[in-house]
Amino acid sequence: MSDKTAPARPAPRLYLATQMVTDPAPLAASLPAILGSADVAAVLVRLKETDPRSMITTVKALAPAIQGTGAALLIDGHPDIVARAGADGAHLTGIKVLEEALPGLKPDRIAGIGGLSTRHDSMRAGELGADYVLFGERDAHGRRPSPDAINERLAWWAELFEPPCVGYAISLKEAADFVAAGADFVLVDDLVWNDARGPAAALAEIGATIRAAHAAAPVAPAGQG
């Protein structure tokens, strides 16, 4: 086996989740500047639960501001409206939902998954063809794993599996730690939207934190990682 170092992995990118969208107009107006402040790969749109026509209209109102920056637009749930809304994919919660949604999303659209409480579920998601797995998000009761547990799951996945892994971070320290653990993307939401300096400044700081953590990460020898 060669003793050369493996090619450096690409710098992890940001995945920004919106707050619950009730009126898309203010968000659509502000998003280009926000997304321009950092390297954002995708935006997860969280829709107020209403009729399909209204939700599709909301997504279409946001699409130019998101996709125009080069970011992918994913809808949180609602895989049935992805194509009609012009979205790039959906984020799904749980294996059963993924199984039901895949035929309608693949091969043209992204199917990401969270709600993976066990390693077995995570591996099953990869086998089914999920485009990414998310670790660390809150459950329906607002609870989430400990940062150490999230780090462990990210490191395990990054070492063994090909699909990208995403770490959901609620602090700058978590964002840096998840990058060091092997996350390909870092999902942020309230960390951005609740910052008193404004979302653009917050996102820029998170992006800088991710770049610094990536630069400081050791390069694995070839054949490892």
Rank of each mutant, 00 (worst) to 15 (best):
M1T: 08
D3W: 12
D3A: 04
P12M: 05
L14R: 08
L16C: 07
T18S: 14
Q19M: 12
V21R: 10
V21S: 11
T22C: 00
S30E: 15
L35F: 04
A42N: 07
V45L: 13
T50W: 00
S54K: 12
M55Y: 01
I56E: 07
I56S: 07
G70E: 02
A71P: 08
D80H: 10
V82Q: 06
H91C: 05
L92P: 08
G94F: 08
I95A: 05
V97H: 13
P103R: 04
I110Y: 07
I110F: 14
G112T: 12
G114A: 11
G114S: 10
D121F: 03
D121L: 04
D131G: 11
G136C: 00
R138D: 12
G142H: 05
R144N: 10
I150N: 03
L154F: 00
L154T: 01
A155D: 08
W156C: 11
W156V: 11
W157C: 05
W157Q: 05
A158G: 08
E162V: 13
Y168G: 00
F178V: 02
G182I: 03
F185M: 14
L187C: 14
D190R: 12
G198K: 01
A204V: 03
I210Q: 05
P218T: 09
G223Y: 00
G223I: 06
